[in-house]
């Protein structure tokens, strides 16, 4: 019988099958590693998890030690980081994409941003030590940490925001202009809202990055042992809110973790596993929030 397809085509089919199988195997392997790691973490850390663990300060005695100061510190620092990075990042992206001339200078900035996203985080730490800690005299404070991390994630936010702003179709922009909208109105009512879901994707990525970052915070003087919280921002007297907590010392979860794993006692290693579980949970929670926000805007503005 004469073959319906040539040997060339048959070979291509076999190759295609081999490729898919290989890709699937690699996927399975990496998932397996992830599952094993997580299972190990759960087995070691779960017995140690309790409300007391979440509400106690670190201690010399492993069974009394907790991560209160660490998770509060992590939340404060990451929120502050987002507070700086998101508006500055979006504004930069809008300027570069919509206002600045498309010259060689603009593409040069884009290349630099890409490179900055890949610079080792310790470099940011050293720069922040010189700039925020010594030059601006902000000390080893929550504010310094928030600013440092926001510099670190800014390139990610800018690049992804710029990409999604660019992806808004020209015909929607022209529709707005044709009705007499000014550039600012077009951006505020259309381009930025429609780019929202893409901007959130960048924010999600940078959130996870900021939460896990250790090295730059060590160089700018995060404490490894701290038995008090930043001051509460609320007060009894007018204006009922203060920002003294910005100047307080802090620690964050990854540093607490690092501290515990470097101790000889195995009980502390259990603490570290439990703290990792909390860190993973916190990351997942923050990511979920961002993903929900993103999907909501994606549903709202679809074309």
């Amino acid at each position: 019988m004469k073959a319906l397809i040539s040997s060339q085509q048959r070979r291509a089919k076999i190759y295609a099958r081999i490729f898919v199988t290989a890709a699937f195997a690699v996927l399975g392997l990496s998932l397996l590693v992830l599952v094993l790691l997580f299972a190990d973490l759960v087995m070691q850390g779960l017995p140690r998890l309790s409300t007391a663990f979440l509400t106690s300060f670190p201690s010399r005695f492993p069974e009394q030690a907790g991560i209160l100061s660490a998770w509060v510190g992590s939340l404060c620092v990451v929120l502050l980081c987002m507070l700086f990075a998101i508006p500055v990042g979006i504004a930069t992206a809008v300027y570069l994409e919509e206002y600045m001339n498309k010259s060689w200078y603009n593409s040069w900035i884009e290349i630099c941003l890409g490179n900055l996203a890949g610079v080792p985080s310790i470099i940011y730490g050293l720069m922040a030590l010189g700039l925020f800690v010594y030059q601006f005299d902000l000390g080893a404070s929550v504010l310094t940490a928030g600013l440092t991390l926001s510099l670190l994630v800014l390139p990610i936010v800018i690049v992804s925001a710029r990409e999604s702003i660019r992806n808004v179709p020209d015909n929607l922009k022209e529709a707005a202009y044709a009705l007499g909208a000014s550039k600012l109105q077009m951006l505020r009512h259309h381009q930025i809202p429609y780019a929202q879901s893409g901007i959130f994707t960048g924010v999600i990525l940078s959130l996870s990055r900021a939460l896990g970052e250790t090295a730059p915070l060590l160089t700018i003087g995060a404490l490894t042992f701290i038995a008090f919280l930043p001051q509460t921002p609320f007060q009894d007297t007018f204006p009922w809110i203060n920002f003294n907590w910005l100047g307080d010392p802090y620690t964050v979860l990854p540093i607490q973790l690092f501290n515990w794993t470097s101790r000889p006692q195995t009980e502390f290693h259990q603490n570290a596993a439990a703290a990792s579980l909390i860190l993973v949970t916190l990351t997942v929670l923050l990511n979920l929030t961002a993903i929900v926000l993103r999907n909501r805007s994606r549903r709202k503005y679809q074309w």
């Binding site: 015909n171 022209e174 429609y194």
Partner: peptide, 9 residues
């Protein structure tokens, strides 16, 4: 315009 371009609103 040539192609319908309603706002996604």
């Amino acid at each position: 315009f040539q192609k319908p371009n309603p706002f996604p609103k």
